[in-house]
Design a protein around this nucleic acid. Structure first.
Length: 626
RNA sequence: GCCGCUGUGGCUUAGAGGUAUAGCGAUUCCUUGGUAAGGAAUAGGUCGUGGGUUCAAUUCCCACCAGCGGCUCCA
């Protein structure tokens, strides 16, 4: 990036005409700024490598000069002619906009002349020795080596180990991973960011084929559409997590999805990551879409009167949605999204002892939530991240966590605390492509109680800031679905039949009448199945299409329907049924009465959320979404 | 965001500088069928979007969009 800085009595310009095909929209055709540091800028190719760094470097440079000159006003003036190696207009525009934003944050009075237009301008240069300066900015630039070494230093101060149940710490390279293949994949994925297999994520085809979710080209990347079956599955998982958190004592709240970028508490936190948010404007205020539920809950807690008796105070929200503008190249199916549903339960505690007690409770909660949803202990690998000090002082506590999980974990320790938390656990799912993604997590945060000025009155009458635990007991709901599908994809690869857990299957029982005349009998059976004896909803439907029985069975199988019942004269006469169970372990015997079947299903799903069939009862009335 | 690959009816796909192939699905008809695809006919496509080259572009070139792979990132 080339900068030409001119300390001027005034600068004024007037827009004349387009210089590129799609210039920036303009609000002001002409403008003027007195006593201004005018900054002529050309954004170059090498800025595109790290636009963010370019902005930060330029901001620092301009700030330095402005302070020397005691200039309060800054005019940013795009000026392509400074360089023969210009960057792409779109990026250049973004860089200028961000630069304006950064400078405004530093409390300068900033104006920016529009990008992509020919402009007439008048400038009056003060002419003193410092009034004309040129600068060449290479993002990271001369500091590149330094920041590289800084990075290395940080890497050096982060140690990766395997921690076993006996409390032994092992080097990753020397650890015998026999029987812990996924932990090996996960460890190397985390440490080296390397993986062996390269293929498209298996769940993408499945989510489409099963009509769960799909891409929506009319939206931004990472914003999915959910078909009836997908919404249904999502809804049940959401309900399940909600209930478990309620049992744990979480107080469910609802908070806004957008927040003022200039809010004093939030803006500091945000400044580090402004490019990663969705931003929207309302009147003259700028808002960002939340990337977690923390803000709303912290602001709520800030205004609350809290006694030590109320601790731990557990606030909970299932965010629909949280937004993160992940890099476009990072988006993949349901694994990584820009809009996602996130259960987020915070616990405010008085001190570290209470934090650690609570941490254990939530650890068990997370493990149990995942397990009951269908992600077993074998499917996840645990990572624990902490500081060296915390580890040294709390070895017993940490080893106890490993024992609770019952298998070795990956541990990362830092010499110094880098983030706002001192301890964090994650349960990671390792998929078919050896990629690891975090599901459940909990963290002990020692910064934000103070930052948000959340206070509780302790026994001694003194007001104190609580420590805050951040937990997502299941991880993003979309990601849970991703994990369930990937898990089934792995099964398919082994030649086993894939299926969703019975409680999550949109259709649990499919009735296949051998002739049209049996359709009404199927309807009666379904009614009978749902007679309220067990208080459980059994979701059954009827394939009344004009197809052969073979075809209907085949379609039910490809739809992963767990139980199929063919209905004809035999069934009507004997009043007994020969179910086709997708999960062969589920079958105890060959024939069942309707009551026995009802009991068997109820037994399996009674502890889970119940809801009605999300599709028409009759297959002939259904729509094909995919 | 960067580099590379891909983009043909709802889905899967053949193909080529002269507006396009098949299967599934849909519709209609025949078949009333007992545990993974019964048969026939009909309809359905400005070949991702926008420019350029050409007598002619869906095909060649450029840009953009989307998806995938890799990198980076993941508070």
């Amino acid at each position: 990036m080339k900068l030409l800085l001119i300390h001027s009595d005034y600068i004024e310009y007037e827009v004349k005409g387009k210089a590129i095909s799609n210039p920036e929209e303009i609000s002001l055709k002409k403008d003027r700024l007195e006593e201004a540091l005018t900054v002529f800028i050309a954004v170059e190719k090498n800025d595109e490598k790290s636009p963010r760094q370019a902005v930060l470097d330029a901001t620092a440079e301009i700030e330095k000069t402005a302070e020397q000159l005691k200039a309060k006003n800054i005019m940013i003036y795009p000026y392509a002619h400074l360089s023969s190696d210009l960057g792409r207009p779109k990026i250049a525009k973004e860089i200028l906009v961000e630069l304006e934003y950064e400078l405004k944050n530093k409390d300068f009075n900033v104006k920016r002349s529009p990008f992509g237009w020919y402009k007439a301008f008048k400038i009056s240069c003060k002419g003193h020795p410092l009034s004309e300066l040129s600068r060449d900015i290479v993002p990271g630039g001369k500091n590149e080596e330094e920041s590289e070494s800084l990075k290395k230093e940080r890497k050096l101060s982060s140690y990766w180990n395997i921690l076993t149940e006996d409390g032994e710490l092992h080097e990753i390279d020397n650890f015998n991973f026999k029987g812990h293949e996924n932990l090996k994949k996960f460890s190397f994925y985390e440490k080296e960011k390397s993986r062996a297999i390269k293929q498209e994520p298996a769940h993408v085809k499945l989510m489409q084929k099963l009509e769960i979710a799909d891409y929506e080209p009319a939206s931004d990347g990472g914003n999915m559409r959910f078909y009836p079956k997908g919404r249904f599955i999502k809804k049940l998982i959401e309900q399940y997590v909600n209930r478990r958190v309620a049992e744990y004592g979480g107080l469910e709240v609802e908070t806004p999805i957008m927040y003022d970028m200039d809010h004093p508490t939030l803006s500091k936190y945000l400044q580090r990551f402004p490019a990663r948010q969705y931003q929207i404007e309302s009147d003259k205020r700028r808002f960002f879409l939340r990337f977690a539920a923390c803000f709303g809950q912290f602001l709520m807690a800030h205004d609350a009167t809290i006694s030590y008796k109320a601790l731990p105070l557990k606030l909970y929200e299932l965010t629909k949605y949280s937004f993160r503008r992940e890099q476009s190249g990072e988006l993949a199916g349901l694994r990584r999204l820009r809009a996602f549903t996130m259960p987020d339960v915070h616990a405010m505690v008085s001190d570290l002892d209470m934090a650690m007690d609570e941490f254990k409770v939530r650890f068990d909660l997370s493990l149990s939530v995942l397990k009951n949803i269908g992600i077993q202990n074998d499917d996840i690998e645990m990572a624990l991240r902490t500081t060296k000090d915390f580890y040294e002082e709390n070895k017993e506590f940490i080893v106890d966590l490993v024992k609770r999980l019952g298998k070795p974990i990956l541990m990362e320790t830092w010499d110094e605390r880098i983030f706002y938390f001192i301890l964090k656990f994650e349960f990671n799912f390792v998929d078919m492509s050896d990629k690891a993604s975090a599901l459940s997590t909990d963290q002990i945060d020692i910064e934000n109680g103070e930052r948000y000025d959340i206070k509780f009155t302790d026994k001694d009458g003194v007001q104190k800031h609580p420590l805050i635990l951040h937990c997502s007991p299941s991880g993003a709901i979309e990601r849970v679905i991703y994990a369930l599908l990937e898990k089934e994809a792995i099964k398919m690869q082994k030649g086993q039949k894939p299926m969703l857990p019975l409680w999550l299957s949109p259709t649990q029982v499919r009735f296949v009448p051998v002739k049209d005349e049996f359709v009404s009998d199927c309807e009666k059976f379904i009614e009978e199945l749902n007679s309220s004896k067990y208080g459980v909803i059994i979701r059954a439907d009827i394939d009344d299409r004009e197809e052969s029985v073979g075809k209907k069975i085949r379609d039910a199988e490809t739809e992963w329907v767990p139980i199929i019942l063919v209905i004809g004269d035999k069934e009507l006469e004997s009043n007994s049924f020969t179910p086709r169970f997708r999960d062969t372990n589920f079958a105890e015997k060959k024939t069942y009465s309707l009551d026995e079947l009802k009991e068997k299903i109820s037994e399996n799903v009674k502890d889970y959320p119940q809801d009605l069939l999300p599709l028409p009862l009759h297959m002939s009335k259904r729509v094909k979404f995919k």
